[in-house]
């Protein structure tokens, strides 16, 4: 058919098609735009955290008092140390990733393999550390009493050092037993009861003269307010409602339950990204080993997952700042 236009006469000209104005392949560009949208998701979460924090600015938990633990060093207060280690591990695995990309550009298969391997190891160490951090946070250490209004009362001695509830309270026989399906309504169940009742804590407090209560209210120097002995006793008797240990989505012995909610949600979402990043890295690692990219004559795939992996590191930098530093 002579009327069919086969050539437009614009080949090689600006509007002739086949142009790559951004000089990046389709896959790489789409990875960038995925990262952009994911960055906005994370910003939404962190900004929501900021919203709640500004809303409760006078009694938000102090991160330095919450995350003080380091594995194998029991009973020592070492704020920031472990999370600094985690940050360093993640930055380090970013470095090995970018070295793998660099080796890929030079088509050095052995080097790419080894750097990918190190990156995966770094990612696994990070995910493991995060699991440990979660476990420690969920377990808690000193315990606290939640008031009827949802506030948290912690116990300190005259020097302001924290006291653990289990150290001054003894458990007494109680009529209240945990409800189990076999002992009543089979379709109703409840979680385990707290180790102590508020009445037992009151007894323990009355028996020890130097125990004071610390509320979550921050004074003008940014310290939590400690009540006097009389105020402490009446506060506990009048308002004490529940003994809490550790943190979960409902209660948080360190202060506002929202802090725990956001911590679980944001670090959990980030941890999920790290986990999926490790899985993708493993897939690419095996592709490198079996020579897929060698045959393709291009290691661009390594570069694309590298972008994702760096993004995970980038997000962590912000999570680190807003959860642990600020």
């Amino acid at each position: 058919m002579d009327t069919t236009v086969v050539n437009t006469g614009t080949e090689g000209k600006t509007w002739g098609g086949g142009n790559e104005p951004l000089k990046a392949s389709y896959g790489k560009m789409m990875m960038w735009f995925f990262i952009l949208s994911d960055a906005l998701t994370f910003s939404g979460f962190l900004a929501a955290y900021g919203f709640s924090r500004f809303k409760f600015i006078d009694y938000w938990p102090i991160a330095d008092e919450v995350f003080t633990h380091v594995p194998f060093l029991h009973g020592q207060e070492l704020p920031m140390i472990y999370v600094a280690f985690m940050t360093f591990v993640l930055i380090m695995s970013s470095v090995t990733m970018v070295l793998a990309v660099d080796a890929g550009h030079k088509m050095q298969k052995t080097k790419v393999t080894w750097y990918m391997f190190l990156t995966i190891i770094g990612g696994l160490i990070f995910v493991g550390s995060q699991a440990w951090e979660w476990a420690t946070f969920i377990k808690g250490d000193f315990g606290a009493v939640q008031t009827k209004g949802g506030n948290i009362l912690q116990f300190v001695n005259a020097e302001g050092e924290r006291l653990a509830i289990r150290d001054f309270t003894t458990s007494q026989h109680s009529e209240r037993a945990q409800h189990e399906r076999k002992s009543g309504l089979w379709f109703v169940s409840e979680g385990s009861l707290p180790d102590f009742t508020v009445a037992e804590v009151v007894k323990g407090m009355e028996a020890n003269d130097d125990i004071l209560i610390r509320t979550q209210m921050l004074d003008e120097h940014g310290h939590k307010t400690v009540l006097s002995r009389e105020e402490s006793l009446s506060m506990l008797k009048d308002h004490g409602n529940l003994v809490v240990h550790g943190a979960n989505l409902h209660v948080n012995e360190y202060g506002s339950p929202l802090f725990a909610d956001f911590f679980f949600f944001i670090t959990g979402f980030h941890g999920f990204h790290v986990f999926s990043g490790v899985v993708i890295n493993i897939i690419i690692f095996f592709n490198v080993i079996i020579g897929t990219y060698e045959r393709r004559r291009s290691y661009e795939m390594v570069e694309k997952v590298g972008l994702y992996w760096h993004f995970v590191d980038l997000v962590w930098v912000f999570v680190f700042t807003f959860f642990y530093l600020v």
Binding site: A47, A48, G50, F51, S52, R53, F54, K55, I57, D58
Partner: peptide, 9 residues
Amino acid sequence: LLQEGGYVE
């Protein structure tokens, strides 16, 4: 969000 959080506070 920060503006509104401060307002609620």
